[in-house]
Simulated scan of single mutants.
Amino acid sequence: MATAAATPLTKLQALKQSVWMDFMSRQFVRQGELARLIEDDGLQGATSNPTIFEKAIGHSADYDDDTRALVAEGADVDHIYEALVVEDIRGALDLFRPVYDRTDGLDGYVSLEVSPLLALEREKTATEAKHYWGKLDRPNAMIKIPGTEQCVPAIEDSLADGLNINVTLLFSVEAYEAVAHAYIRALRRRVEAGRPIDHVASVASFFVSRIDAEVDGRLDAIIAKESDAGRKAKLEALKGKAAIANAKIAYESFGKIFSGPEWQALAAKGAKPQRLLWASVGTKNPSYPDTLYIDELIGPDTVSTMPPETYQAFRDHGRVVDSPPLTADTAAAHEVMADLAGAGVDFKDVTDHLLKDGVQKFAKSFDDLLGAVRGKREQLAK
């Protein structure tokens, strides 16, 4: 591979933060754009979700030929969906395989999500994860499982079976810590069973912008009831601060969990830490800088997965400083959380709400995706 040009994206990589793209489509994989980004920008991985595939399959003709052939074979909607997405993911995995090999399994991954309809069901989630792992049949595949309380055991079991897992929909530090400890337990189980751990990989997808969207809305409601000008100003100053503070505290936990004698014993056997992956990094508030959640969350042993528009924005004008901001002034992050609590924002209620809402939104996207496949099937069957 040629050396990628020096851009904010490659500067991130020099600071040990990997750059993945939160996007997938057949055209993206087959017509050279993904290969170009790997070659020119040093792109290191990709993620997908039902919303992304619903747009790709439901709003283009790129899949019509394959769908028509599957209809002729008598395939039902579920089988058509699986065949289409597995084909795309496998194509992307093959393009990223040199990255995986070159980085000794640190990067080069592409994620495929289990059905969000199973987000509260341990056994079915574990079964589907294993099914997709077998279908993809690539060492650089990752299976996405939501980090709900019910699915944490499925995450641990899947990792113990040797699957690579991307834990998604993490909003709270407590939920992140639960899946990080599940990862370590899974590695210990493999060691105790005499199985290797040097090729088991996992990331913990910690959602960012949705935190600020929810907290800012709650602050606005509190501000509307406040009559004191000074108090209003202090509340206004808290807006846009919660997401970054929450992420910094999660990273502080990462540093504690993946250090010390217990972790070092696993690392000596080849274990890699379960990196934090910053998800939902596109800003939802247009008054915030469009690269805010990348600029402020740069730090070693992390991943930033960016939607295409945010990727291009950061490539163009992202701000990368020599001293990673993720590790700077963690005490101030704790102060932000304390100030939010003092203002009357129940942060546990915020993260509980966002998890429930995220599960529901992904489930709806998955229903819409199957609906799009069903519509294509009916149209092409005629």
Results as ranks from 00 to 15, higher is better:
T351G: 10
G358E: 03
V359L: 10
Y109H: 08
G230H: 03
I211A: 06
D101K: 08
A328N: 13
D76M: 07
A4V: 04
G45N: 06
T351A: 05
L159P: 02
P307N: 06
Y288A: 11
F362L: 15
F254P: 10
T283V: 11
D329H: 05
P307G: 05
G371M: 12
S25R: 12
L9V: 01
R319N: 07
H59Y: 15
A75L: 07
N140H: 02
R319K: 15
H199I: 13
R185C: 05
F53E: 08
K232I: 12
G91Y: 07
Q150M: 10
I184G: 04
T327D: 04
A343Y: 06
Q13V: 08
V215W: 00
Y288L: 07
K16P: 12
V29N: 14
A160L: 00
I80T: 03
G344I: 05
S253M: 07
R36G: 07
F254E: 04
D301Q: 11
D322L: 09
T351H: 10
F207K: 10
L277E: 03
I80F: 01
T103F: 00
L219V: 08
K356H: 15
G32T: 03
G342K: 12
D64C: 02
L235R: 05
A83H: 13
D161P: 01
A5K: 13
I145S: 00
T283M: 08
R97C: 11
A381L: 14
A313Y: 00
R275L: 09
D367S: 15
D301L: 10
D329Q: 04
Y288H: 12
M1P: 08
P98T: 05
L136A: 00
K241S: 13
P307V: 11
R377I: 06
A313H: 04
V320A: 06
G147V: 06
T168C: 04
A331T: 10
A333I: 04
R377Q: 12
L43E: 01
A333T: 04
Y293S: 02
L84N: 03
P289D: 01
S365Q: 11
F207E: 05
E378N: 14
R36P: 00
L354G: 04
G194K: 01
D78A: 09
S18M: 01
